[in-house]
Amino acid sequence: MNDPIISAQGIEKTYDTGAVRVNALRGIDLDVERGEIVTIMGPSGCGKTTMLNCLSGLDEIDAGRVLIDGQALHDLPDNERSEYRARRMGFVFQLYNLLPVLTAVENIEMPLLVSGIGSSEARRRASEMLDVVGLADWARHTPGELSGGQRQRVTIARALVNSPAIVWADEPTGDLDSETADEIVQLVLELNRANRQTFVIVTHSIEVGRIGRRIVKMRDGLIEDDGLTPAPETADQEDAE
């Protein structure tokens, strides 16, 4: 096995709401290969999203260690971690979470601008990315003027525009009808094949779950099962071949 791009050991996370303490993660160990598509599944409240947040550095961990490309993410100060996210990671959320006050192209170019890319270069790459996700004609529309599928495409474009090493997706099709969800799945596969990016996808959907060769099943804050499954061809398979 190559050096994993994501390596998590003994991750623990507890939430204290004041009334109750919830052990959301109770010692997670997980390694993810470069170019791999890993889907994380499990019932509601099992800790999928918490794990994604902890692995990506969006949330703090109580115990354990997360290495991204050999870099201990949680040892980095907040500013450096933010910068790391801007350069190396992309995020896709269930509720799209686009900035409603910016147009589609402005939303997509935002990570580039944050990374310090010049504005004309950022605009060029954002427009290219819009073209890739099939929304070149919707560049000047705000999220409120787009359909759910279109919005999720914009979110994916935003997540991929700075060519991140890892894309974290939390229920990327959760708010979409099956036809649109399928389109999104195909888009992710295409991009993975084209760019060899690592995808970590949290999902409830069996169809989405099958997208990668590896499905991590969770229950009560623990990994219940971590196995390979027959799945569409992904970048890691191509590598292996």
Binding site: S56, L58, N79, E83, A86, L99, S115
Partner: peptide, 16 residues
């Protein structure tokens, strides 16, 4: 609040 989360996710620092 959510949008602040997104901005932080895509690399906005606290100061930004």
């Amino acid at each position: 609040r959510q949008q602040i989360g997104v901005l932080r996710a895509i690399g906005y620092k606290r100061s930004m």
